[in-house]
Structures are given as C-alpha cells and as structure tokens.
Computed example of a mutant assay.
Amino acid sequence: MKKSIFLFCLLSGLFFYGQSQRFTYEYKFVIDSTAKDKQETEMMFLDISPKGSKFYSKDYFESDSIMNANFEKQIKSGTTDLQLTGMKFKGKVRYSIEKSYPDYSVNYYIILATDEYQVQDGRTQNWKILPNKAKIGEFSTQKATCEFAGRKWTAWFTTDLPIQDGPYKFHGLPGLIVKLEDASNSHSFELKGAKKLPAGYEWQSVKDKERYDPLIIVNENKYKKAFKDFLNDPMKGHRKMMGDGVITEVRDSTGKIIDPEKVRRDQEKRIKDNLKRQNNILEIDLLK
C-alpha cells in the first residue's frame, strides 16, 4: 500500500508542480512475421516536460552518449585519426519521437543510410473510448481503440495521470496510456516505471544537435517515398560519398586494409538481407 501511495504522489507531482518526469515502457515486438517466436524487447523512455515529450530507446541513448564522449576525448587529445574500434551501438530502436505541447504536434527523427530525417507527422488517432476497465499494475485503466499506421490498436489509459500522451506517436486520450498493443500481438508497450527528473531538466530537441549535414525535413507522405527508395537501394548514399571522394578506411584483425569495394558489397548484402527480415515493422503501411 505504501508503495502505491508513493508512486501515485510521485507521478501526480508532474501535474501539480510542473515537474519533468521519465516514464519507462517495455516495448515487445516481432519484426519478422515469418519468425513470430523471436520476440524482442527494448526499454523505452518517455520524457515529459512542461513544453512537450520525447520518446526514445534507453540502450541507444546510452550508447550514443558513450560514443560521443569517446569522440570528444579523442578530439581533445589532439588526434586526427579517430578510432571506432570497440565502439558499438546497442538497441534496435534507432528513432526518436517528439511531441510539443499543447498542440501535440509530432516530429519523428530517423536516419536512413547517410540521411537524417525530421518527419512532421500530422496524422492523429481517432480513438473510440469503450466502457471496459481493468487494473494494470498500480493503475485503474479504461479501454480505447483506434486504427493507425496500418494496424488496429487497443490502449488502456489512466485518468489518474491526466496527460494526453503515451508511447510512440500515440496521444489524445484523457489520460496517460499505460498499455498499448496491436491486434496481431506483434507490437506492444507497457508502462513499467516512472521517476522525477532533476529540477530544471529540459530535454534538447534532436533538431538542435550539432551535425555535419542538415536535417531533411519532410511530411509523412514524402518520408514514405524516401523509405521505399531506401529499401530499393540502401547503399545509394554510400556510393555518393565514395563518388565525392569520401573513403572510409577499414582494416581486418591483422591491421591489413580491406578493399573498400569489397566492404561495400558485403555491407550491401548484409543490409538487404536484414531489411527483408523487417517485414513486420510497427508502421506496416510504409511497406505497402
């Protein structure tokens, strides 16, 4: 009972005192429809502040932070030969989603090959709120359904937390989404924890970070075309870099330089094989 009261007070503080909050969701997904027994799990953060929210992978965020710190350390040391050895990104979810309050405009950030996109997604979820109620964890929840991105979704939301947000791009219900799953049971999100963020915390938008090349800003229709182009030719950007004279030197375990053309062919095959297995992505309508 004490734990329940503490959790409720902790979360309620967000709304009464403007305290920024981090909600942790467990995301379970099956990316290959031909291997439904191979379910994957990733912990996701939903950071909520007075100006908006940001949804992203815990593992990918932590890996990115470590890699950036490593690069900064190498640069400060004066080296001009940056080393990538031993650095590897964790996490399979590589996108992030930002919603700005109070209009809940959605921006989706993703990298395809060498291009980084900001997708301004103007779609909304037309929720049907149902009378069904259930207890999920510490929360009393109510059922709602909608169709979005080619899938039918069921959400359970709680009015104990009167904020109209949730995992991924989902929002617009009278309370925070505690659980969300699609009709095929291949994508689901469930709230697993929450904590207050430090006073004065304010997340930095992905669009404001330093980068070599500018963001490509598109709407969801133009992004769908770009996504299909990427599936058809995932190495287009790499070939352009080579055409511009940008050559990445790769060495084997003995230190011998590997033929860059062989590296490109091997990488292209690996990427195409991987993309073929990704036939059950969350936004399934991107593949149609």
Rank of each mutant, 00 (worst) to 15 (best):
L7D: 12
L7I: 14
L7V: 13
L7K: 13
F8H: 15
F8N: 15
C9Q: 14
C9D: 15
L10H: 13
L10E: 10
L11E: 15
S12M: 06
S12F: 10
S12I: 10
S12V: 09
G13N: 09
G13A: 06
L14V: 10
L14F: 12
F15S: 12
Y17P: 00
Y17R: 15
G18S: 09
G18D: 14
Q19D: 09
Q19R: 15
Q19C: 01
S20T: 10
S20M: 08
S20V: 05
Q21L: 13
Q21V: 06
Q21M: 14
Q21Y: 12
Q21A: 12
R22D: 09
R22Y: 08
R22T: 07
F23L: 15
T24M: 15
T24I: 15
T24Q: 13
T24W: 08
T24N: 11
Y25I: 05
Y25F: 11
Y25C: 10
Y25L: 08
E26G: 07
E26I: 09
E26L: 11
E26S: 06
E26K: 08
E26W: 04
Y27M: 04
Y27L: 06
Y27H: 05
Y27G: 01
Y27S: 03
Y27A: 02
K28N: 08
K28Y: 01
F29S: 04
F29K: 04
V30W: 03
I31L: 06
I31D: 02
D32E: 03
D32L: 01
D32S: 02
D32N: 05
S33L: 05
S33F: 02
S33V: 00
S33R: 10
S33D: 02
T34V: 04
A35S: 09
A35T: 03
K36P: 02
D37K: 01
D37A: 02
K38Y: 01
Q39T: 12
Q39E: 07
Q39F: 00
Q39V: 08
E40K: 11
T41N: 00
E42H: 04
E42T: 13
E42V: 12
M43P: 02
M43R: 04
M43H: 12
M44D: 07
F45I: 04
F45Y: 14
L46T: 01
L46P: 03
D47G: 04
D47S: 05
D47V: 03
I48N: 07
I48G: 04
I48L: 12
P50I: 01
P50Q: 06
P50S: 03
P50A: 03
